[in-house]
């Protein structure tokens, strides 16, 4: 564990030493009425989890839900480096595995699936209709980098279709990829259905059959070192409930 300390963590500990040993103990959990639940979730869950967070707060008075949305791989890194999270919802089993392998969570549950769509600008300047249209060298395509889940899924889908696409850029996350479409800088991109729905009015989504070969499972788990284990379990239960399912399907996710 010590070997895995990030430079920032080393710095933080040195600085707290420098501050004449001022107490840096984590506040004891459950002090008084106000409790706080920290959820680390994949960027593609931003809209739906924010809504679920509000629902959770309304049924648990005095509880504040804080989200850290980001790339699943980055979040997994932060958790294994000791970030104080209660719940982790990842966009791929591989990123969740980083956390379970470190012994920080057990038995994650897949709560939704997400599929890819071709996103094109509203006016579809390159007249894209199917995945095959993306191999035209005149068509500018943005994909996610292979290191992030949406990029891995894009590669899988293109392989399944036997197509070789040369993108102009490999973006660092799915939202950045979508932005390039929204601004009309690229003619098409492969992003999640849910992101296309979230950007309604600015981009158009086109389904393609090969997307079925690259379905992304989203696992969720309450973390073993959760500062609020009780609340963590209740939040996971909410996400898995019918109420949670409704919010997630409205955002474009599919039931597992």
């Amino acid at each position: 564990m010590l070997r895995r300390l990030s430079p920032a963590a080393i710095l933080a500990s040195v600085l707290s030493l420098a501050a004449c040993g001022s107490s840096s103990d984590a506040p004891a959990s459950g002090s008084g009425a106000s409790k706080s639940l920290t959820v680390f979730a994949a960027a593609s869950l931003t809209e739906s989890f924010t809504e679920l967070g509000k629902q959770f707060e309304s049924t648990h008075s005095g509880t504040k839900v804080t989200f850290n949305f980001g790339s699943s791989a980055t979040l997994a890194q932060q958790i294994t480096q000791g970030a104080p999270a209660d719940v982790f919802a990842a966009a791929s089993p591989a990123t969740m595995k980083t956390v379970t392998d470190a012994g920080l969570a057990s038995s994650p549950t897949v709560f939704v699936k997400n599929t890819l769509q071709i996103a094109v600008p509203e006016d579809n300047p390159a007249k894209i209709e199917s995945l095959k249209d993306l191999i035209d060298p005149k068509v500018k395509v943005a994909l996610c980098a292979e290191q992030v889940p949406c990029g891995a899924a894009a590669i899988k889908a293109l392989d399944a279709a036997g197509l070789k696409v040369t993108p102009v850029t490999l973006e660092q996350d799915v939202k950045a990829t979508l932005t390039k479409v929204e601004l009309g800088e690229v003619d098409a991109a492969l992003v999640y259905r849910t992101d296309v729905i979230a950007a309604k009015g600015k981009v158009k989504g086109i389904d393609f059959p090969e997307a079925a070969q690259a379905v992304n499972d989203y696992p969720i788990a309450a973390l073993g070192k959760a500062p609020e284990p009780g609340l963590a379990k209740q939040f996971v239960d909410l996400v898995l409930s019918q109420q949670g399912r409704d919010v997630l399907t409205k955002a474009g996710f599919r039931a597992p």
Partner: peptide
Amino acid sequence: ITFAGNFPGRTQTMPLAVYLALET
């Protein structure tokens, strides 16, 4: 990364390579 994107050999400079390597 916002303006020029990220493509090895064309627009992927060291800081971009570092950021993406950090993911995995």
